[in-house]
Amino acid sequence: MNTTVATTGTETKTWGGGNKPLKASYGKMMMWFFILSDALTFSGFLAAYGFSRFKFIGSWPIADEVFTHIPFFHGNYPMIYVAFMTFVLIMSSVTMVLAVDAGHHLRQKAVTWYMFLTIIGGLIFVGSQAWEWGTFIKGDFGAVQTKGGNILQFGHYETIEGEKVFVRDAVKNFATATVTDRTQHERKNGLWFVSEDALPEYTVNDVYKGLESHSNILVRTQDINEHGEKTVLTREESLKQIKTNGKQVVHGANLHVNEYGSPLFGDFFFFITGFHGFHVFSGVIINIIIFFNVVLGTYERRKNYEMVEKVGLYWHFVDLVWVFVFTFFYLV
């Protein structure tokens, strides 16, 4: 060695190299800086969401009215399921940090178990998110989109426990589908290079007829009034809106339309929770790789479980991002 590397006699001095002012290994430090840059990516998305929300502050969908379902139960339970998801992710963060701690004490068995539990937690979370997406895409009540791109929803007033509440009505409960001569365009019966989404079950005219025959049903617009609730139109105004402005019946949400309100809400929901879900998914994959390395004893032979610590950092970061997504999509 001495013949190829010149010794300068400064190795132990501050600028001579070889000392580590941050007392962290290269890998761990780079994981921190990767996390920093990823945090900036996510905050870019969330700030863009905030931008669109401030832009349409007077008509943005109210999250409590959008995410109201729990698997296997009917009824209106806002927040409960997403709180469960948050708890699952925090819990898997805990098992991860326990794995890191067990790694410091070189307890291979404990690390294996904690890593296993972390992976299970991650899978439950990703599964829940898939279900949440499915419910959002499938939709609830259906609505009419206007020519200007606004959403008109339906419902009627009911007195529940002495209080007058607006109860939503599904389009299918009052509209009757009529036969039209418009058929689904498919590649085989029309232009082979053009495809078309599934046709809506009802036309705006069907909805109008149904609305006419059900005198208690009113239209609700997206505009938020001074009580923080969506504005409900009068009967005459309701009929007029559907008649003059109705363009198409929408059910559920996709990247173009969204029965809950502004299509941007759906776009950001899919994009941000999708990007986060992708992080969770890749985190699970990385965790599985590390899990097998632990099982095979790679780190046991190395006498160093720092790899567990590094993926642990990534996994906690995923949890950290979710805490913010949870706040800005479901709470605020």
Partner: peptide
């Protein structure tokens, strides 16, 4: 190095975007 870089850039980003969103509104 990690925390303040993040906080500074994120606050800046949030400020510009929310300010502009409010303007367009």
């Amino acid at each position: 190095a990690v925390v303040w870089t993040g906080i500074f850039l994120i606050c800046y980003l949030i400020f510009i975007l929310l300010q502009e969103g409010g303007y367009i509104e």
